[in-house]
């Protein structure tokens, strides 16, 4: 039995080495440069974005981004429903509902000091991180950044806020409601914007107000803001649902 297990291990490692050799070791074929040539000559003219990464995921491959936001929302729905059922199993529903955001559970003498340190520091850093997230989100077309990057930074900022004031039951409830509203409306607006262009220009995911003289740049800014709000509120909603628990 032991011999057999060792043989299985050796075979799997051998197969993995072969697989990694095929996948990871490049041959002499040079990396293709056609995409780069095309983007350098036409990218800014087509989309108005200096940051070509934004130009790709919001203009050339915007359909990908739509699919990814759908994957994100499905994952968040699944996670939150599983988390709710976890709460139901582990807690007695008759006790009063209070929320506790502190990460440390054990009762040691330095607990109090550590929690105060955590609260003060995160409470001061949180707004700055949030502001930086909005900056990254809004400047995505001319500097590194964009919807996904800004959204994850916003989620981190909201997490820092929540770690900063751990005992506020009311804040948690209200934030939950606000965040889910933001996420749902951003998603609906994203789909509406992408569908609107079918009516005006007949092409999915193109600038709907091009005839009215609005530049493509502003369309990219709007899409960046929508994606950023959606990603940030969705991820922070998921984290809030995980970190809040019913204290028995």
């Amino acid at each position: 039995m032991k011999m057999k297990t060792a043989a299985v291990h050796v075979i799997v490692i051998f197969a993995l080495v072969l697989l990694a050799g095929c996948l990871f070791i490049p041959d002499d074929t040079p990396w293709p440069t056609d995409v780069r040539t095309r983007l350098v000559s036409d990218g800014e003219k087509d989309t108005g974005a200096k940051n070509l990464v934004s130009a790709i995921y919001l203009a050339y491959r915007a359909f990908d981004t739509l699919g990814e936001t759908i994957v994100l929302i499905v994952a968040i729905i699944g996670t939150m429903s599983v988390v709710e059922s976890v709460k139901k199993i582990s807690d007695d529903p008759t006790t009063a509902v209070t929320y506790d955001f502190s990460l440390v559970k054990e009762k040691r003498s330095s607990h109090k000091l550590r929690t105060h340190l955590l609260e003060v520091v995160t409470g001061k850093i949180g707004p700055v991180v949030l502001l930086f997230g909005f900056y990254v989100m809004g400047q995505g077309h001319i500097s590194p950044g964009g919807g996904f990057q800004g959204g994850t930074i916003i989620a981190s900022g909201i997490m820092l806020f929540i770690l900063g004031n751990p005992y506020s039951k009311v804040t948690e409830m209200r934030q939950n409601k606000i965040l889910s509203t933001i996420e749902a409306s951003a998603f609906v607006l994203f789909i509406l914007v992408s569908l609107l262009s079918i009516l005006t220009s007949g092409i999915f995911f193109s600038n709907p107000l091009e005839a009215a003289g609005v530049k493509y740049e502003y369309y990219i800014i709007a899409l960046n803001a929508l994606i950023g709000l959606k990603v940030g509120s969705g991820i922070s909603l998921m984290c809030i649902a995980m970190m809040s628990r019913r204290r028995t």
């Binding site: 990396w31 780069r36 350098v40 990464v53 995921y57 990814e68 994100l72």
Partner: peptide, 16 residues
């Protein structure tokens, strides 16, 4: 410059 295509793809891969 480096290839921007892979960066856009990997951005979505990290979030997923």
């Amino acid at each position: 410059m480096v290839d921007p295509m892979v960066q856009a793809l990997m951005l979505t891969a990290i979030v997923i």
